[in-house]
Design a protein around this nucleic acid. Structure first.
Lengths: 65, 65
DNA sequence: ACAAAATGTAATATATACTTGACAAAATGT
DNA sequence: ACATTTTGTCAAGTATATATTACATTTTGT
């Protein structure tokens, strides 16, 4: 399923997928696929994304329900 | 680095690595390697582990510092 | 309307998460 | 002391996260 919390946190920082990708050291397609819900990132990448967006794991990656 | 928070949360539930592995549907060696810090699990596996141990991502997988 | 940037989405390739099977060492129970 | 469970670890295989390149569509700015 889509990760809209991530998409929205990224928008709140006014970062493009490209810019976030560069900030955390992965490709733009990887960020795109994570937002789209296409795959299942590693925890270390999730932590890097959280740091770049000033969020925690629970805020961006915990499932609701 | 070792994940002692995971090891301790597992101990608090009195589960062996084997039992936790079965509860979350991975091999025992995978749990062992995660506790040992040998690799970088996927977020979905982390979430399953958290659910099995009644913890959140921030409690078990967020880095201190 | 146009240009530029941002996003969606393929195909092929590589690194690594995870499996299975196996064995030894350490811990636990009786 | 012994048996059983738990943990550590290795080697070889499979599945998938991520990279790279490329192109089409959508969005944004002027």
């Amino acid at each position: 399923m889509k990760n809209l919390k991530l998409k929205s946190a990224r928008a709140a920082k006014d970062l493009s997928q490209q810019a976030l990708a560069a900030a955390v050291g992965v490709s733009r397609q990887t960020i795109n696929a994570i937002e789209k819900g296409d795959y299942n990132p590693t925890i270390r990448l999730c932590i890097e994304i959280c740091k770049a967006l000033d969020k925690t794991l629970d805020e961006l990656f915990w499932e609701d329900g």
